[in-house]
Design a protein around this nucleic acid. Structure first.
Lengths: 149, 149
DNA sequence: TATTTTTACTTGCAAAATGCAAGTAATATA
DNA sequence: TATATTACTTGCATTTTGCAAGTAAAAATA
């Protein structure tokens, strides 16, 4: 079989570059990591610091400081969990939501453009394939888990 | 259509984590960026500094220093291009080849494990799909190019 | 209930990574 | 021959990183 890794390496590099060049929103410059943090806060339900840090595979101390700067930028809110005061629940401010949404739009329109190179059948196949992959990776226990085993 | 971005975000995050946790080889600790550099040097034909830096989307000054440390670690060799003495051609040393190969093996065996979750038809479909994607991204001019437009 | 352990996070610090500005040397162009 | 461009390197200041060591709250244990 051909080299699977190089296939993935090329794909993720390209997507990574897309992510990297994406997306300053009206003068508000967001780093790659910050955009990932915004994305995860937006997509998880009342996530704690630890949860997001784990998802992103970031050290909690680094993450703590990243969140601090996002709070200063008024994009993220930190609320103590009423049931457990050790935990900080993260959420996006209105401005944070706007930025996250705007990045999402830009990324999606870039992806639309990529998919526009394909016919309808190919599109569907590719999307179904990525679902398959994501499921397989989720099931696999040797790798790809947020927390290193 | 569903949110394409989150589909890709999940996939590339998982593969990125795999890459990140990969791969210390016999006590020789290689950072994520370094493993990418080794990979690209191994896969391009007599690449120059600038070429690899562009491929990886890394600033040339940062890249220059990364290469310096890889040279110190005796993994990479730098040879002046006989035809143009400004250019440095990069190559792997024997040790560098060994390390790069070893990382490649680890990554591939992880990926094999992921694909083992699928049946033969699914496997082929997924692989074909990634090829399709890579081609589409290569053709697209709005995004995904090594050099920011 | 009192004590210990664990969890969730924060801060100190030192090392590494980053990128702009400013350099050098070689080549291409006018 | 003079000028511009290219390919890289170094200086420096900033940012990012992660381990060690802290705090405070909750859970587990005695």
């Amino acid at each position: 079989m051909e080299n699977l890794r190089s296939l993935f390496q090329v794909m993720t590099r390209r997507f990574g570059l897309l992510n990297k060049n994406c997306c300053s929103v009206g003068g508000c410059d967001i780093s790659l990591i910050q955009s990932h943090i915004l994305y995860e806060i937006d997509n998880q339900h009342n996530p704690s610091m630890q949860q997001i840090a784990d998802t992103l595979g970031t050290d909690i101390t680094t993450f703590s400081r990243q969140v601090q700067s996002l709070v200063k930028m008024n994009l993220v809110k930190k609320m103590p969990d009423p049931a457990d005061k050790r935990i900080s629940i993260l959420s996006l401010t209105a401005e944070g939501k706007f930025i996250a949404g705007s990045i999402d739009q830009q990324m999606n329109s870039f992806l639309q453009e990529v998919f526009s190179q394909m016919n309808e059948f190919e599109k569907e196949t590719v999307i179904r394939s990525i679902h398959l992959l994501n499921n397989a990776m989720a099931k696999s226990n040797a790798c790809c888990k947020p927390i290193q085993g």
